[in-house]
Every structure is written in structure tokens, then in C-alpha cells.
């Protein structure tokens, strides 16, 4: 399937990746090539086949609903690019 520039711009926005306008054309053709190659999958008969959701044949374990960790605010903030008074900071989001 051939992707056009507008579709690439839309995907990039969904993925929160800024893509400069002059790169859209090149990316569109690169991604189209990859998708065309992937479309060989259409040859496979998957009628009635259950999609694999886990390669491990086991049900997910249940665990106790218990607090096992915590009181690590300093650790959690240690790598943040912006903090103030024990919080993460972000640009103003409310007018």
C-alpha cells in the first residue's frame, strides 16, 4: 500500500513525532516500500486461525493486591528534566 504525505503526517502526529515537511515525501516512499514487502502476508490463509496473543502457553498469574513498594518520590523525580516542589513540571496546559 502506498502512503501519501498526508497519511505520514497524520501517523507522525498520532505518534507525537515532529516530522519536517521536507522529510514527508522521502518517508512516505520508504514506509510504502516496507509495507509493500509486508503485504506478502496476504498470501497466507488465516481463515479460522486464532491470533497469537502470547507465545507462552500459560494464563497470566494473579497476584495479591498488596502494596509492595513506595515512598520513593526522590528516586522517581531523580531523572526528570523538570521538577518543582516534589512534582514533575510541564508547560502550561490550562488557560
Amino acid at each position: 500500500m502506498a502512503l501519501d504525505k498526508a497519511t505520514v503526517a497524520k501517523i507522525a502526529h498520532l505518534a507525537r513525532l515532529r516530522v519536517a515537511d521536507d522529510r514527508l515525501e522521502g518517508l512516505a516512499s520508504e514506509l510504502s516500500n516496507i509495507l509493500t514487502w509486508i503485504e506478502h502476508l496476504e498470501e497466507v490463509d488465516t481463515e479460522g486461525v486464532t491470533p497469537m496473543s502470547s507465545v507462552v502457553e500459560a494464563n497470566l498469574r494473579q497476584r495479591e493486591d498488596a502494596i509492595t513498594d513506595g515512598a520513593k518520590a526522590d528516586d522517581i523525580l531523580a531523572n526528570a528534566p523538570g521538577t518543582a516542589a516534589g512534582f514533575f513540571t510541564v508547560p502550561k496546559v490550562v488557560e
Binding site: 502476508l41 497466507v44 488465516t46 497469537m52
Partner: peptide, 27 residues
């Protein structure tokens, strides 16, 4: 590049054709 392909494969309208198909092939 991979984030864009993955986002496309999971996006509305394409999920069945790409992601679900690939998961069936994986089976």
C-alpha cells in the same frame, strides 16, 4: 521509522489488515 510503521499498523482502519493478520500468521 519503526514507531511510524507500528502506529500505522495499530491505527483505526488498518488494525485488522496488518496487526491482526500478523498475529494470525504468527500462530
Amino acid at each position: 521509522r519503526r514507531i511510524l510503521i507500528g502506529t500505522y499498523a495499530l491505527s483505526a482502519g488498518y488494525y485488522d489488515a496488518y496487526y491482526l493478520k500478523a498475529q494470525k500468521v504468527r500462530t
